[in-house]
């Protein structure tokens, strides 16, 4: 049985070719601003630090889906480099979550990241003395 790798939460503005490995499993969110059905391509948009960031999503695996322009979507899939687009997410899951409290979601993601960072710091510090002695 082949389980896919875990899709870790990323903010839409973190999905850039220099920040993410190709083939990495991620999940992210954004407002659907464009859907090109003939190319199976959707574009999600999110605002951060007064800049608009776009995430291009390949929707081939999740079709047919009902595109609601302007609604918030959650996408889960693998990144790949597409010509002319840069990083594209090949969606395994695409769900409409319109009405989601984006600010709270961002807070929750950060909360989780902080927790893992804290814990890894703690573990690194605990492990270090053991290695040196």
């Amino acid at each position: 049985m082949m389980l896919p790798p875990a899709a870790v939460f990323h903010f839409p503005w973190e999905i850039k070719s220099n920040a993410i490995r190709e083939g990495e499993s991620i999940r992210t969110f954004g407002r659907l601003v464009l859907y090109q059905s003939e190319e199976s391509r959707a574009t999600l948009s999110a605002e951060h630090a007064s800049k608009e960031h776009h995430v291009v999503v390949n929707t081939l695996f999740v079709e047919p889906f009902n595109p609601i322009l302007g609604a918030q979507y959650l996408v889960l899939g693998e990144t790949e480099n597409a010509e002319g687009v840069g990083v594209m997410v090949r969606a395994r899951v695409l769900t409409c979550v319109d009405g989601v409290n984006i600010a709270l979601l961002q807070k929750a993601i950060n909360e989780q990241r902080n927790f893992f960072r804290e814990r890894e710091c703690g573990q690194a510090q605990n492990a270090q003395p053991g290695n040196t002695t």
Binding site: M1, L3, P4, P5, A6, A7, V8, L76, R92, V93
Partner: peptide, 24 residues
């Protein structure tokens, strides 16, 4: 999130992804 599913006569197998790992 369910990211994998298989149905048998008596049970379902769901692969569940919580963002840190996937477990059957």
């Amino acid at each position: 999130k369910v990211v994998y599913k298989r149905e048998r006569e008596d049970f379902f197998c769901y692969g569940v992804d919580d963002g840190t790992g996937v477990i059957n």
